[in-house]
Every structure is written in structure tokens, then in C-alpha cells.
């Protein structure tokens, strides 16, 4: 008998639409939908996709506990031997949903789970320790390879075959060290590595020293009554017409906009251009993302000193970590020069 596989996908890959359908509640179909059709084909005779569970990304992200529970019930209904979620490529919310449902199904149903993501997807750092996340390209253009690699790994897991190291199997490692035999002994590997290092060539260490991305928290603001506070946002709220042509996703720039004299961000003068969430609310009232109105009010009441005259905004979807770090560094230096005392940063 063939192994039973269930696929989890979002509203977009189920063909229901993008952001307008992102609040789709979970449902299941007794057939392969979207990418699950190709997965079913690739699995061949050894396994079969017996059902597809669909859930909107925003629904999952905003109702994570309920969404998790409802999706799990639907998956459980098929009594699968393995769950495949996504692939999510570089879609952050989809990645989180895929990772979360995989970890949940793995823990509660005790079945192996596989998903696929681009290395910068936040889901990778969050969930790679607890499920198999196959490395994919950053967008659905890489679908063909992604599905091939996901099904290859899935079949190995279903059959209980011994896995090679993560880098050879093509998934993000789960933070586990396991012993393998190399072709060469350790002494030869060491001399090879040293000679490469001496020549300035690329070499690959066999054990990375732990890197800590954390930084020491900055000192708190002591005198809030006289403090200048700046608003920064990755929520994509910009002056109407997007004068700086900031990209709706995978941003390569940010904007700095004068808000002096503005008490309220009305939809006539500001809009959201963010490509990663439903902009309906933000476009009715941009303050729900970039809260100028209430900040101005608090400023007038004397709760804090001054709202800085400029806001900095960009779009935080699909934006590379390197770019995000560069934006942060430049904005930080700018704010320091301006004598700003603290920042409130909103993200969607």
C-alpha cells in the first residue's frame, strides 16, 4: 500500500487569490490542489497525496493558535504518514505558517514533516530545528526544483532510509551534530584547509563558531518629557504616489518624509504600498501602521517631548537581510546626528 501524504498550502497556491483572500479560514479537500498535484506526480507509485489543507496566510498569522488547531484537525482526518507544507519560498507569513504546522503535526501526530523555503525566510530560523526545510529559490520561479527536492527527501523519510548530512540532502540543518565518515582523514582535511586559508581561497570550516546576532540593549530614555522620538516603519506607508519609487517588496531603498505640521495621516496624503499584507485598512487610515495621529496627540499632551519631524519607511517583505541591515545602519546614523532619543518602529 502506498504511503499517505497530506499537503498544506496557502490561499494563493490554492488559486483563491492574493491578499484579498489572505483571511481564508482553513478547509480541506480530498485531492491534491496547486503544487500538491505535481508532488503527487513526483511521488510516483510509492506514495499518494490523499488530501490538501488550505489556510490564508493572514488568518494563520493573526490567529496562530486557533489556525494551528483547526489545520491540525483537518490533517489528522486523513491519517497521513507524512506532511508536506508549502514550499513558501521567501514569503514570510507563509513560511511561518508552514513551519508552525509542520512542527505541530510532527509533535502531535508523530509523523515526519517537510517544507521548503528561501534561506532568508524568517520561518527558517524559527523552525529549521524542528522540521525538514528544503532549500528553495526566493520565488515560485524555483517551484520545479523545490518540489523535486521536497519529494525526494519525503520518500527517504517515509521509507526510513538513512540520511546524508543536511548540506548533501539539501535542507536547512536541524541544529544536530551527527557522525559521518569523510573520504579523507582529519589530518589531510586540516592541511588542505590551512593551505586554502593561507592562499586567501574560500575554505569551509567543519564547525562554525556560534555567532550571536543579539546586541546589548541600549540604555533607556531617562527624561521622556524632553525626549525626541522618531517613527520608523517597514509597513510600506509612503506619501501618496510613492515619490521615491520604493519597491512593494524586496525593497532596495527606504524613504525619509517630513511630517512636521501633520496631525493625522489621511488617505488623501499617505498610502501603503506594501506588497505583503492586505492594505485595505492601512489605505483607509495609514495611522494603523504608522501612528502619527496618536503620537501627535501624546506629544501635545506633554507625555513625551517631541515627535521627530521625519519618518523613515520601507517595505519589509522579501527584503534581503543585507539590505535591511544597511537601511537600519543608515537610519540609525541619521537619527544620531539629529539628536533623536528613541525610536518606535512598527512592522507588519
Amino acid at each position: 500500500m502506498a504511503y499517505k501524504v497530506v499537503c498544506y498550502i496557502n490561499q494563493f497556491f490554492a488559486g483563491m487569490g492574493g491578499e484579498e483572500a489572505a483571511h481564508q479560514e482553513p478547509f480541506a479537500k480530498r485531492e491534491p490542489l496547486g503544487p500538491a498535484m505535481q508532488i503527487n506526480f513526483l511521488l510516483g507509485d510509492e506514495a499518494e497525496v490523499v488530501g490538501t489543507v488550505v489556510c490564508g496566510d493572514s488568518y494563520y498569522g493573526e490567529n496562530i493558535e486557533i489556525a494551528r488547531e483547526r489545520c491540525l484537525e483537518l490533517i489528522k482526518g486523513f491519517s497521513p504518514d507524512l506532511l508536506i507544507a508549502g514550499p513558501a519560498f521567501n514569503a514570510g507569513r507563509y513560511g511561518v505558517a508552514c513551519g508552525d504546522i509542520c512542527v505541530t503535526a510532527g509533535e502531535i501526530l508523530g509523523i515526519p514533516t517537510v517544507t521548503g523555503m528561501y534561506y532568508e525566510n524568517p520561518g527558517v530560523e524559527l523552525y529549521s530545528n524542528k522540521t525538514f526545510i528544503v532549500k528553495t529559490a526566493d520565488s515560485a520561479r524555483g517551484m520545479k526544483d523545490a518540489l523535486q527536492n521536497i519529494t525526494t527527501l519525503s520518500l527517504k523519510l517515509l521509507k526510513g532510509q538513512k540520511l546524508r548530512p543536511a548540506e548533501e540532502e539539501g535542507y536547512f540543518h536541524r541544529g544536530i551534530r551527527k557522525n559521518f565518515f569523510y573520504e579523507e582523514n582529519g589530518a589531510k582535511r586540516a592541511v588542505d584547509m590551512l593551505l586554502k586559508k593561507l592562499k586567501g581561497e574560500l575554505f569551509k570550516t567543519e564547525y562554525e563558531m556560534p555567532t550571536f546576532k543579539k546586541i546589548t540593549p541600549a540604555k533607556p530614555v531617562k527624561d521622556i518629557k524632553n525626549a525626541t522620538i522618531a517613527l520608523v516603519s517597514s509597513g510600506g506607508v509612503v506619501p501618496k504616489g510613492n515619490p521615491d519609487r520604493i519597491r512593494v517588496s524586496s525593497a532596495e531603498s527606504y524613504g525619509k518624509y517630513d511630517i512636521s505640521g501633520i496631525d493625522d495621516l489621511s488617505p488623501e496624503i499617505f498610502e501603503s504600498i506594501h506588497g505583503g499584507y492586505d492594505r485595505v485598512w492601512a489605505n483607509k487610515d495609514p495611522d494603523v501602521v504608522l501612528p502619527v495621529d496618536v503620537m501627535r496627540q501624546l506629544e501635545k499632551e506633554g507625555v513625551f517631548g517631541k515627535l521627530y519631524d521625519y519618518v523613515y519607511t520601507t517595505t519589509g517583505t522579501g527584503t534581503s537581510v543585507a539590505n535591511a541591515e544597511r537601511f537600519g545602519k543608515e537610519i540609525g546614523e541619521d537619527l544620531k546626528k539629529a539628536g533623536v532619543d528613541a525610536v518606535i518602529l512598527t512592522s507588519t
Partner: peptide, 11 residues
């Protein structure tokens, strides 16, 4: 990065 380069609290 903002917190690191400006050395001010960022919430």
C-alpha cells in the same frame, strides 16, 4: 542595526 548605530533604544 538602528539601535546599534544610533545607540538609542528602539522599540
Amino acid at each position: 542595526e538602528i539601535e546599534a548605530s544610533a545607540d538609542i533604544p528602539v522599540v
